[in-house]
Write a protein that binds this DNA or RNA. Structure first.
Length: 566
RNA sequence: UGCCUCAUGGUGUAAUGGUAACACAGCAGAUUCUGAAUCUGUUAUUCAAGGUUCGAAUCCUUGUGAGGCAACCA
């Protein structure tokens, strides 16, 4: 069980407070039953993770008198696919949650839901309308003026029943008839102006096949499905606030329901430098703006996983952001903090030079090779050590050398000294350039007395400590440097009403480095393993593209860089 | 010209009528064989105006701002 989700936050959010009050009042027989109800029309993203952590987290916190259902809200066959069903289950599991026996589909209830609809018709609370789409829209009124009831509302119960049964039999075309609730055409809440309950859809459903040609609307199916599963707390996002009265109307007016759930709403997650709506994510995928749903730059669960973000980091993040009704915009830095916090604990260290520059240690014997012992984790001796080879020629990061150093730069510079981490100190004696004036090689000398961290005699300890890779032993590898997908904090808002958010795509969001020089032990990096290339970033051995002996690394997140250039 | 919801440092949250706090970010220092991590310190907050109260971030009124609502989508 994921610990981060099992313990409730120190202070209770408004949802947990309400649940505590329900429990204190002895409601629901002391049970807490929640549900995570995705529509299988896309991949899950970090916003869904917030909901998953809430609903499944609640079940864990209130165990054993609690459970959380996974229910697919599959009431619109035109948008749903099994591919999405499968990915959603995989993502929820990967996040560390388990629905156990409680896997449901709204489509499981189609027959019962149909029966409830006949019940409402019989009670005079629902009617078959034959207005066209346009007529219905026109008669609904506007935000400031009431609507007018359609003539169909006056039909007899018998006629409505007959019509509804014929709808089910397939006697009508799509759009010809619709079942509506009879509530209040003058309600200030548009959702109560005789909302549609069933529409005709001659579409193939991924589970029920062609058994049905009428499908329930979300507003109708959701509360009743909740009730059928004896859900106690139906938690959703803020945009469903105005649907609550309808939710309650159905629970109150349908007889024979095993449960009496209630709905409460919380603010969805917004993150800087990304987009979160399924529509926009779908666009990124369909227009090949990214490399599929699991592109490491995507805010999808599968994308984040492939980038190397851990489930623990996501859970911890969800805990950090809290739960309110405030429409917030969370800085991506908060997510990155959770990621680094977890990766720092679990990642073994290694050397990787992304933009190599060759260094020749001129006073080091030509054919000598020696191995230095390097700890795999600085804060965890149990992680053991590894042997890192060194020879006369090595690669260092080109960023770690400056011909004309700025103030405060304490890495390698002409005539300056740095320590090769876990090896010895070198001094830069000479810069070799090509005809165009580019630096191609550095000639350095090493100091034998500085092995194993010893201070050079008579001199001050060099401030600079850099990573390095032996040229003769280096593993050439492909490393992808991922960055934020967009150049602006709020791509949707900045794009405006009908603007195109794609224009804010960050052209540098994926830089592929093909000639990175990695320490040889990385050759054995298992696909799906997490690493910290010291002083650079956290990396993830891509599970799809890595081949035996030839790992491909994705940069998950950079290390914090405390050095500000003056 | 409607209805609903919301408003606390730069960001996210806490304080449930009684000293406005925590995390992130920032800054400074200590430490460090990662300019990381760790540790210490630090900058910065109640949308506005009235009212109730001994006392208001909290309750009331009005205003302002933000988000949402007129699918046979979810």
């Amino acid at each position: 069980m994921p610990e981060a989700a099992a313990t409730p936050p120190a202070s209770l959010d408004f949802i947990r407070e309400m649940i505590a009050a329900d429990l204190a009042a002895g409601r629901n027989g002391g049970q807490v039953v929640t549900r995570f109800p995705p529509e299988p029309n896309g991949y899950l993203h970090i916003g869904h993770a917030k909901s998953i952590c809430l609903n499944f987290g609640l079940a864990q916190e209130h165990a054993p008198n609690a459970r959380c259902h996974l229910r697919f809200d599959d009431t619109n066959p035109t948008k749903e696919e099994v591919e999405y069903v499968d990915s959603i289950m995989a993502d929820v599991k990967w996040l560390g949650f388990d629905w156990g026996e409680h896997l449901f589909y709204a489509s499981d209830y189609f027959e019962k839901l149909y029966g409830f609809a006949e019940q409402l018709i019989t009670k005079g609370l629902a009617y078959v309308d034959d207005q066209t789409h346009e007529e219905m829209r026109a008669s609904r009124g506007t935000l400031t003026s009431p609507g007018t009831r359609s003539a169909g509302a006056d039909r007899s119960v018998e006629e409505n029943l007959d019509l509804f049964r014929r709808m089910r039999k397939g006697e009508f075309k799509e759009g010809e008839k619709v079942l509506r609730a009879k509530i209040d055409m003058a309600s200030p809440n548009m959702n109560l102006r005789d909302p549609a309950l069933y529409r005709i859809l001659h579409a193939h459903h991924h589970r029920t096949g062609d058994a049905w040609c009428i499908y329930p609307m979300y507003d109708y199916a959701h509360p009743l499905s909740d009730a059928l599963e004896s859900i106690t707390h139906s938690l959703c996002t803020l945009e469903f606030e105005h649907h609550r009265p309808l939710y309650e109307w159905l629970i109150a007016n349908v007889d024979g329901l095993p449960g009496a759930p209630y709905q409460r709403e919380f603010a969805r997650l917004n993150l800087t430098y990304t987009v979160m709506s399924k529509r926009k994510l779908l666009r990124l995928v369909k227009d090949d703006l990214v490399n599929g749903w699991d592109d490491p730059r995507m805010p999808t669960i599968s994308g984040m996983r492939r980038r190397g973000i851990t489930a623990a980091a996501i859970r911890s993040f969800c805990k950090t952001i809290g739960l309110t009704k405030f429409n917030s915009l969370t800085e991506i830095a908060l997510l990155e903090h959770s990621i680094r916090e977890d990766l720092n604990k679990i990642s073994h260290r290694a050397y990787g030079v992304l933009r190599p520059i060759k260094v020749v240690i001129t006073n080091y014997p030509e054919d000598q090779v020696e191995f230095f012992d390097a700890p795999n984790h600085p804060e965890d001796a149990a992680a053991g050590t590894r042997q890192v080879p060194l020879c006369r020629e090595i690669y260092i990061e080109s960023d770690d050398f400056m011909e004309f150093p700025s103030d405060g730069f304490h890495r390698l510079k002409p005539g300056g000294e740095v320590r090769l981490k876990f090896a010895f100190c070198i001094i830069c004696q000479e810069i070799i350039k090509d005809d165009a004036g580019n630096i191609v090689e550095l000639r350095c000398t090493y100091d034998e007395t500085t092995r194993h961290g010893k201070k050079p005699e008579g001199r001050t300890k060099p401030k600079g400590i850099i990573h390095w890779v032996s040229a003769r032993h280096a593993l050439d590898a492909t490393v992808r440097l991922y960055d934020r997908l967009f150049t602006v904090e709020t791509p949707d808002a900045d794009a405006g009403e009908d603007g195109d958010f794609a224009k804010f795509l960050n052209p540098a969001s994926c830089e592929v480095v093909t000639n990175a020089k990695l320490e040889p032990s990385l050759k054995e990096a298992a696909p799906g393993s997490h690493w910290q290339f010291e002083r650079v970033a956290y990396f993830y051995a891509d599970p799809m593209d890595s081949k035996p002996g030839a790992p491909v690394f994705n940069r998950t997140v950079t290390l914090k860089d405390g050095w500000v250039k003056k």
